[in-house]
């Protein structure tokens, strides 16, 4: 479907008195192109991929590791760029996203598409040359999964959009491990599962508060389709799975004492905040509970991965079992 007519007409209205204008070049700043890459998501991807590298039972040349991380970040940014190109019509009607470069008219949709495709192909090729073709293949799969499967299909088609689409955000640790070992092991598979199960309670907490905006944009988020109460129950269910899953690295021996404490306390807090979301269903208290869960979920994931990084990267690992 066409994602751009509203944008194009906005831009064209300002120049409609001219008989013909050459192919529109961008008036965008360099910062606008950088914004297309969703830098905060890129930072998260670098972080989780780095953790995937550090928990791996071998080492990689630091230069190759650094270049690989950069390419994973660029690939993630490219998929974000393609997502912004496709979703420009949705972004234009949501307050959180209407100032993005395309809906704001600072960058033409075609430019974003070219930019995203170029970076996608480039990042996959360089990662393949730098590390190995398994990691490059996984990066390519991640980009296609996010840009095509999630953005173009699932997001507008099913309330399970972010559940299935969450796989794209969960893959970077696997790519990181593939860079180091040339294969995908149990460590990065567990990290994949943690991010995958973390995604629904994280996004649905926000969707409960922003349900009106998603409805206006025509996005079938869970609160709009199954209703807020069903969403709240599902948030608790996912958190109940996430809390013990978060401790799996300890059981498998690559998470130590620090990680165990963070995982236990954080998992219980996630579950507690989810129950609060279930109990407080009306008014400002409901929004506050949902936003508390949303905010804490980010902190929880960050702390889990930071603990692994500290233990494996800084030598702070103290075994809990055995």
């Amino acid at each position: 479907m066409a994602a751009t007519p509203s944008m194009t007409s906005l831009t064209n209205s300002a120049i409609s008195d001219r008989p013909f204008v050459e192919a529109q070049s961008s008036g965008g700043e360099v910062a606008d192109y950088f914004a297309l890459l969703k830098p905060r998501v890129m930072a998260l991807v670098i972080f989780t991929a780095l953790v995937g590298m550090t928990v791996s039972p071998s080492h990689v040349n630091p230069v190759i590791g650094a270049i690989s991380l950069l390419m994973i970040a660029v690939g993630a940014g490219a998929s974000g760029c393609l997502n912004m190109w496709w979703d420009a019509d949705i972004d234009a009607v949501m307050t959180r996203t209407r100032t993005r470069p395309i809906p704001a008219g600072r960058i033409q949709p075609g430019e974003a598409l070219s930019f995203g495709l170029t970076l996608s192909v480039g990042s996959v090729l360089v990662l393949g040359l730098a590390a190995n073709w398994l990691s490059a293949g996984l990066l390519a799969f991640t980009i296609v999964f996010y840009a095509v499967i999630y953005s173009m299909w699932l997001k507008r088609a099913t309330a399970q959009n972010i559940v299935i689409g969450g796989a794209a955000g969960a893959l970077p640790p696997m790519i990181g491990q593939a860079v180091v070992t040339g294969t995908v092991g149990i460590e990065s598979t567990i990290l994949f599962l943690i991010i995958f199960i973390w995604t629904p309670p994280h996004f649905w907490a926000l969707a409960l508060v922003k349900a009106g905006e998603y409805a206006r944009a025509g996005i079938p988020m869970m609160p709009n389709v199954a209703g807020p109460d069903s969403t709240r129950r599902q948030i608790v269910a996912y958190s109940a799975v996430l809390a013990p899953l978060g401790l799996a690295p300890v059981a498998l021996g690559f998470g130590g004492l620090i990680y165990g404490v963070v995982g236990l306390v954080g998992g219980l807090a996630m579950l507690g905040l989810s129950v609060q979301v279930l109990r407080r269903r009306d008014g400002e208290a409901a929004n506050k509970a949902a936003m508390s869960l949303f905010g804490f979920s980010i902190l929880y994931l960050f702390l889990l991965f930071s603990a692994l990084l500290a233990e494996q990267g800084l030598g702070l690992f103290r075994p809990v079992l055995g």
Binding site: R18, P19, F20, V21, E22, S25, S26, G27, G28, E29
Partner: peptide
């Protein structure tokens, strides 16, 4: 008929930065 677009000084500056 094609009318070449006249870039403003700001647009020229942005193009240089790009």
């Amino acid at each position: 008929s094609a009318v070449p677009k006249q870039l403003t000084p700001e647009e020229i500056q942005r193009r240089r930065k790009r």
